[in-house]
Design a binder for these strands. Structure first.
Lengths: 146, 146
DNA sequence: CGTGTTGTTGCAACGACTCGCAACACGGTC
DNA sequence: GACCGTGTTGCGAGTCGTTGCAACAACACG
């Protein structure tokens, strides 16, 4: 990623695992590298279809799964339960989602570090921070309620 | 709830808001009161259908929404994004979900109190603890990986 | 450069919800 | 007890994502 040709890196990682480098995966990877911020699953499907109308959803979702296993993506669920992907490497972060206005914010991993530490200590549970979406009400909406 | 006839309480709360008490809602409420632990949306549909095969999903989901607004239910999203309801009043709690074994645990609200406090202080964000599902790996699965 | 193994694709069906809309019925009123 | 306004229901269609399966194709090997 720092100077390396990204698609080739992914291709080699796939081959090293006995997996294959296909035109469909190449397309999806192109879409991913030009994505910014958070992208939902169906948005990925739409963007792929813009470039290749024959794209099928199942292929996109399965490829996203594979790329997540390789560590190039992380997904979480928005407050409505829908899938939301973001591209790595960005700083690992959790999400705040306001159920009143629908807004969404990122929280740095170290802001939830206390929780992560105590769950590990007290329950042996290792939190997947990137998957964490915290629902609630944002400052403005909370104020508006009063 | 403590000695009071529960369905009548709900009925009166509905009426007080200009909403209505229907046979369908009565059935769904029966199912809820006999539910223990966490129940998914489609499980509610199934259980209602056992008692009345004519039950339609949309009615069930809409009624669950109404009852949640009245405060008799809370819902969160399991790690796969599906809806999961639990009946109140039980102690408000968050959930841990192990993405390896699929297991699920409850965490008392005060265990996430530190996080709730710092998000409120630093971001003005009020967390909906009951809606919080934390994904990661449980003690056993984490150990098995090593 | 054929050939065979095995990972992938595309399709079609399915599962979990959601939404718009017309018919229905709760329940307050006369 | 009939009447009527408005909340509800049931239906059908639609969205998002998943899965089983047969045909296909990447790619390692000879």
């Amino acid at each position: 990623m720092t100077g390396t040709a990204f698609p080739e890196t992914v291709r080699d990682q796939l081959r090293a695992r006995g997996l294959r480098w296909t035109p469909q995966r190449r397309l999806i990877l192109d879409v991913i590298t030009s994505a910014r911020g958070h992208v939902t699953g169906s948005e990925f499907v739409d963007r792929c279809r813009e470039r290749d109308p024959d794209t099928t959803p199942s292929t996109v979702y399965r490829t996203l799964d594979v790329l997540e296993e390789l560590g190039y993506l992380a997904h979480s669920h928005a407050a409505d339960g829908r899938e939301e992907y973001h591209v790595l490497p960005v700083a690992e972060h959790a999400h705040l989602h306001c159920s009143a206005c629908g807004g969404s914010w990122e929280v740095a991993a170290d802001e939830v570090g206390g929780l992560v530490g105590s769950l590990r200590r007290d329950h042996g549970f290792v939190v997947d921070v990137a998957h964490l979406t915290i629902a609630g009400r944002c400052r403005n909406c909370e104020a508006a309620r009063a």
